[in-house]
Nucleic acid binder design. Sequence first.
DNA 1: CAATTCAATGGTAGCGCTACCATAAATCTG
DNA 2: CAGATTTATGGTAGCGCTACCATTGAATTG
Lengths: 341, 341
Amino acid sequence: MKPRSRRGGGRPTIADVARKAGVSAITVSRALREPERVSKELRRQIQHAVGELGYMPDPNARALASARADVFGVLVPSLTNNVFAEVVRGIYDSLSDGPFRIQLGDTHYSGLEEERLLHLFLSQRPAALIVSGIDQTAAARRLLVTAGCPVVQIMETGPDPIDMLVGFSHFDGGRVATQHMINTGYRRVGFLGARMDPRSQRRLAGYRAAAEGAGLFDPRLVTTTPVPSSVSLGRELFREALAKVPTLDAVFCNNDDIALGVLFECHRASIDVPGKIGITGFNDLDMMHVAYPSVTSIRTPRYEIGRNAVAMALEEIDGNRPETRVIDLGFELIPRESTAR
Amino acid sequence: MKPRSRRGGGRPTIADVARKAGVSAITVSRALREPERVSKELRRQIQHAVGELGYMPDPNARALASARADVFGVLVPSLTNNVFAEVVRGIYDSLSDGPFRIQLGDTHYSGLEEERLLHLFLSQRPAALIVSGIDQTAAARRLLVTAGCPVVQIMETGPDPIDMLVGFSHFDGGRVATQHMINTGYRRVGFLGARMDPRSQRRLAGYRAAAEGAGLFDPRLVTTTPVPSSVSLGRELFREALAKVPTLDAVFCNNDDIALGVLFECHRASIDVPGKIGITGFNDLDMMHVAYPSVTSIRTPRYEIGRNAVAMALEEIDGNRPETRVIDLGFELIPRESTAR
DNA sequence: CAATTCAATGGTAGCGCTACCATAAATCTG
DNA sequence: CAGATTTATGGTAGCGCTACCATTGAATTG
C-alpha cells in the first residue's frame, strides 16, 4: 500500500510532478515560484507535467515550509456596512489575479474582538495585514508593530501610522459639509449621528469646529446614538432632533442612510427640502443623486482606499519599501438639491 | 544556535509547551483538540503552560498533518450586494466562536470564476463549502461532488442538491408579488429586472406565471438589462418601461434598489404612488418600510440562510448527517403603502 | 589556460503538527 | 484472580513543501 493513501487522499504532489518531468522536486518548486531561475526547457516540461497531473500546490505545506502564508488578513468593523463592502471590493479586485488569498474578519466595532482576530490571523503568518481605523487598543497596536509583515491602516489619515496608512480626514469631511450648509444660509444646523465610532466622532468634531467658527454651535443641535446606523434610525434621530430644537433648519448626517431616513421623514411630514430643512449626507452612495430631491453628500474614496492599501502592501512585499507611508486620498463635497436654496 | 531560529521565528511550538508541562507533544495536541481524553491534572498543567508561553497552534502545520483545514469556503456572486452581505453576516456570526476560519470568494456572477475559486479553495482541503445558487457549471458541480467535505448550496430551493441546500423559491416570490398587485386591481403590471442572474430569471418566470394566469401577460411589460443593479438603474428601467407602455400601472422590481429608483422617479415626475403606479420590491431592506410612501416587498430570510447553512455543515462535520438535505426557509409578502389603493 | 565566477540543478533536513500504533496501568469480567 | 477490556499516555513517522547548502559544468577572466 502506498504510504500516501494513508491520509489525505492521493492528490498529486510536487514529487509526482518531479518524477513525471524527470527533475528533482526542488526544481519543480522553483519553476513554480521563480520561473526565471529555471531553464526554458525544464520549465516547459514541468508545466506540461503540472497540466497533465492537474497538480495544485498545497498552500498549507507551502506556508509551513516557508513560514509565510500567501494570505492578506483584512479586518473591518462591519461586513454589511456599504462603506466597508466597497473597501473590501477594492481589496478583492486588487488581489484576485495574484497568489494571495484573503482572510476577512469582522470586528463588530470591538477592540477586544479585533485583538482576538489579530491573534488568529497572526498565527497564520500572513503576508500583510489591513486593519480599519487608527484607534487600535494598546495590545492590538503591539501585535501589529511586531507582526513581521506590512501593516496598512485604512479609512483615515493621521500622524502616527503603525506602518502605512491610507484614507482621508473625517474631521475635514465633517467640517466641509457643515461649512457648506452654513455658507448656503442655514443657521440652525444639526448633527445626526448613529453608532458614533471613532470616525463618526471625528466628523462630529469637524461639524463642531465649523459651527463654532461661525458662532452657530449649540450642544442641543447634536443628536447621537450608539445604535448601529440604518435608514429607519435616521428617521428617529430626525424626529428627536426636531422635537428638541423646533427651529432646526438643516442636518449634517453621519452617513447617507441617516440622510435618507431624514429625507423620507420630511416627505412624510410635508417638510420642504431644501426650503425648510437642508440635508447633507456622508459617503455619497449611488442613491443620493437619484433621490428626490437629490441629496448633498461627501463623496469618499472607499474603493480606492482598498486598492491603494493593497498596492502599498504589495510594494513592500516585493521589497520596494514605499517612500510615502501615509496617503491622504481626500474627499469631495457634492452639492445637490437638498441644500440648494 | 537553535535550529528553530533558522526560519520562522522562535514562536513557541507544541514541543515547548510539552516540555514545560512535563508531558509529550502528542498529549498537548490531544489536550487542545479533545480535552476529555486527557486527565484533569495534565489538562490543567498544559493549559497553564499554554497561557505562560502564549502558545498558539499553527493552523498550517495542523492542516498539513491532518489533511484537513479548519476553513469554511464561502462563494458568493457579489460582496457589495446587500443581500449577500446579510448572508455572509449570518455565516460569520454562526462561526465566530468556533475553530473555523472563513475563506470568502467573490465569483462576480461568473461560472468560470467560480470554478477557479473552487480549485483554489479545494487545494486547502476545507472543512465545508458554501456556494451560492444551483446553477453551477458541469465542471464546478463535478468539483463539488468530489470535494470530500460537506457542501451547502444556498439562496434557492430545488430538487437536486449536490449535497445540501438552503433557500427559498424565487419563482414563488415573483409569483406572489405579482399576484398581490393583480389582486389589488393593477392591470398593466410590469417587470423591471437588473443583472438577470438565474435567481432573477426565476422571479421573472414567477411574474410571468402570475400574469399569464390572470390573462394579463404582455412581453412589452418586461424590461430587463444585464447591467448590475443600482438605484439609478431603477430609474432608467422605469423610464424605459413607461416610454414603451404608457398605460403601465404597476411594477414588480427585481429587488429593492430598483424599486427605490422607481419611487424616486415617481416623486420627481409627480406620479402618484400607489394611485397611478403600484410598486413592489424584493428582499425587504430596512429602508422599504421607512420610504414614503412605504414600499411593498418580499421579505427574504437572508441572515437565516447563512445561519442554517453553517448549522447543517457543522452537523455533518460532527458526524450527524442531517436527515433533511433541503431546507425551504420561505419568504413573506409585506404589503405596504406603495400598493395600497 | 589555471583560477574564478556564475548559472542551473540537486540533496538534505526540517517547518509544527497529528495519524497510527504501541505500551503501561487501571478496571472489569465471570 | 487470570484474562480481557478500557483508559491514559508516549513514540515514530510522516503530511507536502521550501531554506539552505552542495555540486556540476559552462562562461569569464587576467
